[in-house]
């Protein structure tokens, strides 16, 4: 910075103590940017204990409600309802966690945080990627907690350790894909209320699927919808892996086939929504 910008009155201002700050050598790289942004999201989560408590207890509460209220009424073809439910519950939980990310992104827009980040000499794509990666980490930790609660209420996966790990990984990957959709929702909504409103679509997506009840218990027209939407596809794959038996999960085909389809859906969602979200952040 040049001294020509100093007003001529500067000598009179004896109270100005501060030496000028050296400007940085250049803008930060994308990795440093993403890590810095991610650090903020993680801190924000860890330091807001209410958030931790609320999200864990709501997660646990709904799992208990489903398990003990619906458990007796739902016919799940020979397997215990808890074994049917927990894989589906894990898959849909990433949607509910993800919708909170949409709210967070919208809140940033409302409160000027997004304006600040966009005014900085950083890669805007790196800002979005950093945010989504942090949310993904938090979402995966949430999955661990939910799975543990599942085991506590009687869930006993019969798959091999590898299959169970793959089931968990698939839940987490599906969460990653969903986060891109929710980032886009938050950026499009621009304020918390609209983001919450748009996130309500999580309910039909979760309930009109094989996550909580078998699809063949639904009316015919609804079955057609439920069978072909990603939550069902991913749930079937996770359930088949976790139970170690596609037939127990109500599948006609093989576990591998169903996992392949789930991965294809996940990749497809990322391929569509990640560029849209980044684009949206770049050019408001």
């Amino acid at each position: 910075m040049s001294t020509t910008t100093v007003p001529t009155t500067v000598t009179a201002v004896a109270t100005a103590p501060a030496a000028a700050i050296e400007p940085p050598a250049g803008p930060p790289g994308p990795v440093a940017t993403a890590l810095t942004v991610a650090g903020r999201s993680v801190r924000r989560f860890v330091r807001t204990p209410q958030l931790l408590v609320v999200s864990t207890t709501t997660g646990a509460m709904f799992l208990l409600l489903f398990r003990y209220v619906f458990g007796g009424a739902v016919e799940t073809g020979g397997i215990a309802y808890v074994d049917f439910l927990v894989p589906g519950y894990l898959v849909t939980s990433v949607l509910f966690t993800g919708s909170e990310a949409a709210t967070g992104v919208a809140e940033d827009m409302e409160q000027g945080v997004t304006d600040r980040f966009r005014s900085l000499p950083v890669s805007r794509a790196a800002v979005v990627v950093g945010r989504v990666l942090a949310e993904w980490l938090l979402l995966t930790l949430g999955l661990v907690v939910t799975a543990a609660i599942g085991v506590a209420v009687g869930f006993r996966p019969d798959g091999t350790a590898l299959e169970v790990a793959a089931a968990f990984g698939l839940c987490s990957l599906f969460g990653f894909a969903a986060l891109w959709l929710f980032a886009l929702i938050g950026l499009t909504a621009g304020n918390v209320q609209a983001a919450q409103g748009m996130s309500l679509m999580v309910f039909p997506l979760s309930f009109v699927s094989s996550a909580y009840v078998p699809v063949d218990s639904m009316p015919g027209w609804l079955q057609a919808v439920a069978e072909h939407q990603p939550v069902t596809v991913v749930t079937d794959a996770v359930r088949s892996l976790a139970l170690g038996d596609p037939a127990a999960a109500g599948l006609d085909g093989s576990t591998a086939g169903s996992v392949g389809l789930a991965l294809a859906w996940t990749a497809g969602l990322v391929a569509v929504f990640a560029p849209l979200a980044v684009q949206r952040y770049r050019r408001p």
Partner: peptide
């Protein structure tokens, strides 16, 4: 005021300083 409530004053400034490069 676009500052992060869940971070300290210093942490906020460090974060933005990193993003300036």
């Amino acid at each position: 005021a676009a500052v992060e409530q869940a971070m300290t004053g210093r942490e906020n400034l460090r974060m933005v300083a990193r993003l300036f490069g």
